[in-house]
Computed example of a mutant assay.
Amino acid sequence: MKKLLSGLVLVAGLFAPATAPAQDFTEKVLGETIYVPAYSRVFSHPNRSDLLAATLAVHNVDPDTEITLTRVDYHGEDGKLLRALLEAPVTLAPLQSSTALIPINDTSGGVGANFLLEWTSETPALSPIAEAIMTSGSGGPGPSFASRGRVIERKLAGD
């Protein structure tokens, strides 16, 4: 049995995805663009899907520095802008959060919708946590999950 398990570990290691270099979460920067996947529905069978509400949550994790959200946009699965969610920049104090809701009856984004947000700071700050929380909102058992954002552009001090 021990040989079988070690063989499985070896085989599993052969097919494991290559790991990217670890991100330095303590690096302070002047701003970023963050892509956050979101889903307005998920399929459980070829002809059956569950509608989902999506809440974008942005957490300023820097205990000392405020950041300013300058853009929060909602895009459909085709990549087209559906709507801008900010009417004016929003400043988040240290450890403050902000949210935006795409209601359960809004299916305009499709299965592969996403949020694109930009933030800046006058002094270097830690990258915020940006994630989408999707839920069926039906009150009963149903799909519920979250997806974490990914930095796609970064503004360093001196850029």
Results as ranks from 00 to 15, higher is better:
residue 31 G to Q: 05
residue 66 E to D: 08
residue 13 G to D: 08
residue 27 E to K: 14
residue 131 E to C: 13
residue 40 S to N: 08
residue 66 E to P: 06
residue 61 V to N: 00
residue 143 P to Q: 07
residue 10 L to A: 10
residue 21 P to C: 05
residue 67 I to T: 02
residue 24 D to A: 07
residue 14 L to I: 12
residue 69 L to H: 02
residue 119 W to G: 00
residue 159 D to F: 11
residue 139 G to K: 02
residue 38 A to W: 03
residue 79 G to P: 06
residue 149 G to K: 01
residue 48 R to S: 09
residue 1 M to S: 14
residue 71 R to E: 05
residue 79 G to N: 07
residue 66 E to Y: 02
residue 113 A to N: 06
residue 126 L to D: 02
residue 88 A to G: 13
residue 33 T to Q: 01
residue 151 V to H: 03
residue 29 V to Q: 03
residue 61 V to T: 05
residue 109 G to A: 12
residue 110 G to W: 09
residue 118 E to D: 01
residue 86 L to M: 10
residue 46 P to S: 05
residue 63 P to V: 06
residue 118 E to I: 02
residue 139 G to R: 03
residue 40 S to W: 08
residue 117 L to W: 03
residue 30 L to H: 01
residue 141 P to H: 14
residue 154 R to W: 04
residue 144 S to G: 13
residue 91 T to I: 06
residue 10 L to T: 10
residue 50 D to S: 15
residue 132 A to M: 08
residue 158 G to N: 04
residue 43 F to H: 13
residue 11 V to P: 10
residue 59 H to C: 06
residue 114 N to Y: 10
residue 124 P to T: 04
residue 34 I to Y: 00
residue 138 S to D: 10
residue 52 L to R: 15
residue 33 T to E: 03
residue 40 S to I: 05
residue 49 S to N: 12
residue 33 T to D: 04
residue 126 L to A: 05
residue 121 S to D: 04
residue 28 K to N: 01
residue 77 E to V: 09
residue 17 P to V: 05
residue 141 P to K: 12
residue 66 E to L: 02
